[in-house]
C-alpha cells in the first residue's frame, strides 16, 4: 500500500492505494501523522477509492487518526469507500463518529461550508 497526499488550506487528503492490513497499517499510520504534523493540517480526509483490500486493521487506523485529529479540533472524513470497506467499518460503528462522503470533493465542500459559517459567526460576534 502507498499513500498520495494532497493539501487544500488546512485539509489533508490522504489517498490510499492498495491493500490495507496489519502489515501496511503501521506505515499508513506514521505517514499520515507525520504529514499532518509537518504541515499543521487541521482536518483529514481519507480517500479510499483505490483501496483494493482491507481487514479490521483499517478500523484501528481510522479510529486512531480520529482521536488525534479531533483532539486538535479538526474533523475526519471517509470518502469513496467501496461497499466492502464500508461493511467492515460499519461493523465497528465507525460511521457513528466519522462522517462518510461520496467523494473527496463533497467532503471538502462540507468542510468549507463549515469554515464559512465559523467566519460569519465570529464576524457577527464582533
Amino acid at each position: 500500500m502507498h499513500l498520495n497526499f494532497q493539501m487544500t488550506d488546512d485539509i489533508l487528503i490522504a489517498s490510499a492505494v492498495g491493500e490495507l492490513d496489519h502489515h501496511s497499517a503501521g506505515t499508513v499510520r506514521t505517514e499520515i501523522d507525520e504529514t499532518m504534523d509537518a504541515f499543521q493540517c487541521r482536518h483529514l480526509i481519507f480517500d479510499f477509492e483505490k483501496v483494493t483490500f482491507m481487514d479490521s486493521s483499517g478500523i484501528g487506523v481510522v479510529l486512531g487518526r480520529y482521536n488525534k485529529v479531533t483532539k486538535k479540533g479538526g474533523r475526519v472524513f471517509l470518502a469513496s469507500c467501496s461497499e466492502f470497506v464500508e461493511k467492515i467499518l460499519y461493523m465497528a460503528g465507525i460511521f457513528s463518529i466519522v462522517d462518510k462522503q461520496k467523494n473527496v470533493e463533497d467532503a471538502i465542500c462540507l468542510l468549507n461550508g463549515q469554515k464559512q459559517m465559523e467566519m460569519e459567526v465570529s464576524a457577527s460576534g464582533e
Partner: peptide, 11 residues
Amino acid sequence: TEERSGMGFTV
C-alpha cells in the same frame, strides 16, 4: 501499544 480494534473475530 498499537491501535487494535478487537474486531478480528467479529469480521
